[in-house]
Simulated assay, not measured.
Amino acid sequence: MPLRISVGLFVVFFSLSGCGQDYSLSPPADSEQITVTVKVPKELKAKTMKVMYRSATCKRISQGPSGQRLESDGHHGFDVQLKRQGQSDLYQVKLPKDGGGACRWHLANVTFGVDYADPSRFGESVTTGGGGGVVVVFDHKNSPRGGTGIEVKGDLTIKKDYYPWIIESFIGRYEKDISLLGESRTYYLNYQALQAKDVYFEPILHSGFLVHSVGPKVKEKGNYAVFTYPDGTVEAIARAQPDFRKLQAIRLAAEHKK
């Protein structure tokens, strides 16, 4: 049975096999709208947004390890491209909080962010890495990445610093990518915003402060990645990623000298 949702300027199609009822998303005309806006630096691009709606009415049925019947909330996910606002650096999408339909869908969470528009500017073999992601949960359920995140009241405004991070890896196969390093220990910031009507994300890219890491070529005890910071400092240490606070200090010291 085809599933359809028409929201603003986009139409998304789903399919669900074996359904015996109407699973369509049909937002009412007066549904409250949630607006997500991303301010995109010129070297970056807006990632495709992943949207998830849930339903407590239309359950998903599965089977447990002992053959028992398991029920969970129904859910449907789809992708949406954020639309540029005129000639500005703002990209936006509006989503109905109430998905409507017989299943009484509600907006559960969105996953979005930014990454490099042209990773090849860092070299022919460089690919897009991670970082620059945001997950916002609008209900009490876990996000696709686990947990509900930091709870915020009202609308959500996110302004965070990011640094370009080139990662070279050798074990398994050679890879070189350009990632966005932020303050989070993961590549995604996670929030729960139950009352939000507006979500605004402004990544502040400090493109002049690049950090470079080179992984070990042999997996042996004591072999660590080597981190080279923009001030020339080199560290070989058991660390999963560069020291964000060190980068902040380097940048602030450089800006103070100007």
Rank of each mutant, 00 (worst) to 15 (best):
M1I: 05
M1H: 03
L3P: 01
I5T: 08
I5H: 00
V7D: 05
G8D: 10
L9R: 14
F10I: 15
V11D: 15
F14Y: 11
S15A: 14
L16F: 08
S17Y: 09
S24M: 12
S24K: 11
L25E: 04
A29Y: 02
D30L: 09
Q33E: 12
T35F: 06
K39G: 06
E43I: 15
E43H: 15
E43T: 15
M52Q: 14
Y53V: 09
Y53P: 02
Y53L: 08
R54M: 10
S55W: 03
T57P: 05
C58R: 03
K59N: 13
G64S: 07
P65H: 12
G67Q: 07
R69F: 01
S72Y: 12
H75Y: 15
H76I: 13
H76Y: 13
G77M: 06
F78M: 06
L82T: 00
R84F: 07
G86A: 10
D89A: 10
K97L: 10
D98N: 14
W105S: 09
H106I: 12
F112D: 00
G113L: 02
G113P: 03
A117M: 03
P119W: 00
S120C: 14
G123N: 10
E124I: 06
S125K: 15
T128A: 14
G129M: 00
G130Y: 02
G130N: 13
G132N: 02
V137E: 00
F138A: 01
F138M: 05
D139A: 07
G146V: 08
E151H: 15
E151W: 12
V152Q: 06
Y162K: 08
W165M: 01
I167S: 11
S169R: 15
E175T: 15
R185G: 02
L189K: 12
N190R: 15
Y191P: 01
Y200K: 11
H206F: 07
S207H: 06
S207W: 02
L210G: 12
S213W: 03
K217S: 14
K219V: 10
K221Y: 13
G222W: 10
N223M: 05
V226R: 02
T228F: 12
Y229K: 10
D231W: 08
V234G: 09
A236K: 11
I237L: 06
R239K: 12
R239A: 09
F244N: 00
R245H: 10
R245V: 03
K246H: 13
A249S: 09
I250K: 04
R251E: 01
R251H: 07
